[in-house]
């Protein structure tokens, strides 16, 4: 069998889920025996490749760039995994949603605290505009599996990937299904 192509993506999240992935320590070597990481913050690929087998998405969909990227990823990926609470529920990234739109968030971040030339960042084509509402992954694209946790502990990630690599539909239960 061909080696599996795995991608990881970091959207609106704190990178904690990726840290937790690195906490897999030596099991990462086991993973490397069967799979290649073809895209993500841990490798230097500019373009999301075609025909990816598994993509772990950390973070919520928070700006227009995320939306476009997710549409592309969904098209090019066989199994899409919402990786960690921000991707699954919006979590901390979505704490701003009750404010109703992006404007009050930007004002709070860039105008209120500034005492020298307050201005909102405006670089079309460089800084992607924020969405008015942060979306959990499944509100943007159909998601195949959910791996909750903030962050998901390394053991939980391992249990999940092991089932996936064995060709089974991962089915987390009990304490492995805890949010937070």
């Amino acid at each position: 069998m061909d080696r599996l192509k795995i991608a990881t993506v970091w959207l609106g999240g704190c990178s904690g889920c990726h840290m937790s992935l690195l906490d897999l320590d030596e099991w990462l070597f086991e993973l490397a025996k069967v799979a290649d990481v073809v895209y993500g913050p841990l490798v230097d690929t500019k373009e999301y490749p075609a025909a990816v087998d598994v993509c772990l998405v950390e973070g919520a969909v928070a700006n227009t760039e995320h939306v476009e990227l997710m549409h592309q990823i969904r098209q090019r990926t066989r199994v899409l995994v919402a990786f960690g609470d921000c991707a699954v529920t919006g979590n901390v990234t979505a704490l701003r949603n009750p404010l109703g739109s992006a404007a009050p968030v930007l004002e709070r971040a860039y105008l209120d605290p500034a005492n020298l030339r307050p201005a909102l960042p405006h670089e079309p084509g460089v800084v992607p505009p924020l969405l008015d509402r942060v979306l959990p992954l499944q509100e943007a694209v159909p998601v195949d599996f959910f791996l909750p946790g903030c962050p998901p502990p390394a053991d939980r990630i391992k249990a999940f990937l092991q089932e996936l690599l064995a060709g089974k539909a991962p089915h987390l239960t009990g304490a492995n299904l805890r949010f937070g």
Binding site: A94, N97, P148, L172, G174, A175, L177, R178
Partner: peptide, 13 residues
């Protein structure tokens, strides 16, 4: 949620 196997919310928050 843990014991009833709710791994995500399928409705818009």
């Amino acid at each position: 949620a843990m014991h009833l196997g709710m791994d995500h919310v399928s409705f818009p928050y």
